[in-house]
Amino acid sequence: MDVLFYIFSAIMILFGLGVVVSRNPVTSALCLVVSFLGLAALFIQLDAFFIGIVQILVYAGAVMVLFLFIIMLLDLKSEEHQPMNYMAFAGGVILAVVFVVQLASVLSSFKAGELGFPLQQHELTLAENAEGLPEAAQERMAEEKLPDVHLVGRTIFTHFNFPLQVVAVLLLVSTIGVVILSKRKLT
């Protein structure tokens, strides 16, 4: 399983690099799609099946189609080779290097994170965890499988019910906002 982690994180990082370095916006967008697919695979490796699927559907599907649609609509050309601002370039690279060095130094002193991921125990605590779950999900837990979607759904609809309603209103507001922004004449 460790090999899969390295493969997918390499895919994610390399295609993420492709987003930053490629001059053609369409290439950038397609690299970002592959990078997000690698990220979704990492989510699934962390037993977050629902989040992984949502990442593919929402990001790699809807959001990136929207990006490609806008790129084609605006008919953006590749950036021409313009005289580069070396100060800005050096500043960006130095900032990135400093950030990575700091990250490495913090993580090397973070001892708690050097433990492996603990094993999941579904059966031992079945009674406490099964509360409010449908029968099918409880059977899956008894078989030592993770009914991920049921558990995420239970959390969202019980602990986070009010934020869920707020997010629904936010989506409605953003839809209306986009329609108003796209009107030709703002009066």
Binding site: F5, V19, V20, E79, F99, V100, F110, G113, G116
Partner: peptide
């Protein structure tokens, strides 16, 4: 063995790539 630190480092690398993109690129879409 893959530990929590591995995931945090990869996540930090992806964040740094995004930060570099914001700093270096000129196109609003990118």
């Amino acid at each position: 063995m893959v530990t929590l630190n591995h995931y945090l480092f990869v996540s930090g690398l992806l964040f740094t790539l995004g930060l570099t993109g914001v700093m270096l690129r000129r196109s609003l879409i990118v």
